[in-house]
Nucleic acid binder design. Sequence first.
DNA 1: GCTTGCATGTAAGCGGTTACATGATTTT
DNA 2: AAAATCATGTAACCGCTTACATGCAAGC
Lengths: 185, 185
Amino acid sequence: MALEHAILVSLLEQPGSGYELARRFDRSIGYFWTATHQQIYRVLKRMEGDGWIDVREVPQQARPDKKEYSVAAPGRAVLSAWLHEPIEPESVRHELAVKIRGAAFDDPAALIREVERHQQAHSDRLAHYLAGERRDFTGPEAPAALDAGQELQHVVLRGGIAYEQMTLAWLDDVLATLHRLGPER
Amino acid sequence: MALEHAILVSLLEQPGSGYELARRFDRSIGYFWTATHQQIYRVLKRMEGDGWIDVREVPQQARPDKKEYSVAAPGRAVLSAWLHEPIEPESVRHELAVKIRGAAFDDPAALIREVERHQQAHSDRLAHYLAGERRDFTGPEAPAALDAGQELQHVVLRGGIAYEQMTLAWLDDVLATLHRLGPER
DNA sequence: GCTTGCATGTAAGCGGTTACATGATTTT
DNA sequence: AAAATCATGTAACCGCTTACATGCAAGC
């Protein structure tokens, strides 16, 4: 379980409210870890109770007040301990692969549109990642020298880009295979 | 939720017991969908109750009896319906990426050994996949002509291979980045 | 004698998803 | 007038993980 740790990292990068965290989990952090706001609020409350994070009530004009969370010393210690702990390499969970193997017992051609939908989605994500990379790291408005945090964010983003490119190439392969199986057999 | 569907696919490919299914989920199917035997037994019971699958008691000598499950007509219908339903492209959940971003607030160099461990694991998996590909699809003992089911299994396996190769290349990138950050800063 | 493999389960707990709820302000 | 944004929550459910449990046979 690493939602707590993902939140700690995100709060270290930038303190913020539960709502703001939820938005980040739809963007940068969410590229490799997802969470809904309900989850985030519950975990924030527990982390606050455990003294991992501090809260500060921030009044705002023309907007509801918000609670700004920031990482406390015990939270940093928890994160550091976790960073030094080995974790198991992820096992993939790929629903589409189940579908593809299932297509052998149905009409393979029926999957073509589904695969094309996934191509579109991954292609959109790739474009989004590349735009973010240009904006923050490689474009003309990016900082000339990056600090350690930025370098690490960049290498994670490169991982996302590589993943999407690999997936798109594989989906091409899948489509070609489905087309080969479709008409003649 | 697709465990039921993964089980249906696996039982269509080859009927078998809960125990056998659990072993397959450690191998072929498990490359892209994991499940423990406890989960599998529970779901099998429910699927049997719903009439999706049939059971046959198989006595064995020198071994405990087993229940061999096979897909019934309603199960095929359920699978077919699912195959025609669109699914959302997976969102990745990559704990290591959280750790890498977290390393900005700790000692980046401490992550190097962890990344090397992951390299080893992914390298092993890749070797395993490639051996399976040679055995079943490209080697001298593989069938000359593949049927649709085998073609689809092969394209899924190619996806696993591409994933591991991409991951290994990315982990090299991560290591290089950590080494760059480590000594001087 | 110990471990591994075959075979099937129960029980507890928890993380995560989905649905529901509220309320003000800004934009369309 | 309606929809979207900001902001925080409660409640129910369910899938999944972990731990515990049993029992026999074969191999080291």
